[in-house]
Amino acid sequence: MTEPILTVAGVSKTYDSGTVALQPTDLAINRGEIFALLGPNGAGKTTLINIICGIVTPSSGTITVDGHDAIREMRQARRRIGLVPQELHVDMFETVLATVTFSRRLFGRSGHSDYIEQVLRDLSLWDKRKAKIMELSGGMKRRVLIAKALAHEPEILFLDEPTAGVDVALRRDMWKLVHKLRAGGTTIILTTHYIEEAEEMADRVGVINQGKLLLVDDKDALMQKLGKREMDITLSEPMADIPAALSEWDVSLAEDGRRLRYVFDATAERTGIPSLLRKLADLGIGFKDLETSKSSLEDIFVDLVADKVAA
């Protein structure tokens, strides 16, 4: 096992107001991996990222970036990190090329480089390089932020909620870019509150809630652990009550009885789906549509927290 590229040890944040944004946290990020920090809004994801990037001063703990202490060897540590913030913080009056060049210089590199052109082309921004940022759409502004973060050729890229409020096309582009960067050796840490995003992109997932890193695990292992799924059955005729004959399945009614929702464990040997459908047929209950989905993040947290309490 190689040394982690990023180590977070005992890092916590308590604001002056007394609010605990982050409880003491340990985390090691492997070189070249895509790590997703998964949690609801206000869970402490951004706080953790901002502490690592030097924007927020931690109340305790140390951070080591590729062997360099983030405070004592600030320059070596920060040069390796690029950050794409959640909000669209850009200089409206600057041109795309000027602001990306600014970022590259700010991180200690010469402004003249073919690399900037490469980054802008990869992000479909090259044609817009002379445009003022205020003239760009929201999605384009987000691309500019990514270009700025990549401008100094960082080894670790932080993406704070990269697809929040982003349309489907850009989201797909973003995922493609992340995979491309990873193929080039960049370590990527992203925060998200979409479980699909973590599932689509990450190698490992950390689940954070209420300032506490609840668990860190390989994505596949985690998805299996959290593999609760829902099946929505759209009924032909609305139903007033659930027939007693269905009591052995975990079913509930939704949308004024037009849908029957069945919660099951996808990892269990028997999901109970075939028998449920047979039973519906026996009872003469018709349905128009079937849809299964993973349980929402909220359900997962409920499970996780319940598990912790039980353990």
């Binding site: 030097g54 200089d91 700010l106």
Partner: peptide, 14 residues
Amino acid sequence: FTGTIYELLSAPIS
């Protein structure tokens, strides 16, 4: 005011 300070604070600049 605009929030772009995040970049200054995270840069390797004293």
